[in-house]
Amino acid sequence: MSWVLGIIALSVLALVAGLILGFAAIRFRVEGDPIVEQIDQILPQTQCGQCGYPGCRPYAQAIADGDEINKCPPGGQATIDRLADLLGREAKPLDAAHGAEDVKKVAVIREDECIGCTKCIQACPVDAIIGATRQMHTVIADECTGCDLCVEPCPVDCIDMLPLPTKPERWTWNLEQIPVQNITDAAATTETSERGPA
């Protein structure tokens, strides 16, 4: 009869353990951010739509529903890695079908060519272009995400995507990138480098 006793003992043990675990699951439940929120936090919020969704939030929702995590060119590999980390998925290289990683850019309107059609204003996902009908438009550079969406609708092609210039206060100490002047003779120095390398 000892095996019956064994089974009973194990069953009781399992029951007790189950109760404890069940209690712990309710009592010590951690209320985390909903996963979509967390994914949205990682995405670069460029709202460019290169992923095929109309903005970062919809893409976050799509990822949470099982879409691939490598469709965000502005975020690049860093974003993919962080998403992979968060979701416990494999970090893949960026899907080339959605574009390539690029330097940060900002939209600039060539203002003398602008005809004031407001089309770019309607295209901007973050309302970073101001202007009115038949008035010249301009981009609020600080708010521009560099999403590229205003370029296509412009009927006169007066919007350029320019790389964001490096400012001294946002320089990241890349000493190797500093152009060094070569001086062969002193006379040439003052001539050629009155202003130094721009």
Binding site: W173, L175, E176, I178, V180, Q181, N182, I183
Partner: peptide
Amino acid sequence: MSFFIASS
């Protein structure tokens, strides 16, 4: 000659 960039 040329100038030499180094970090402190």
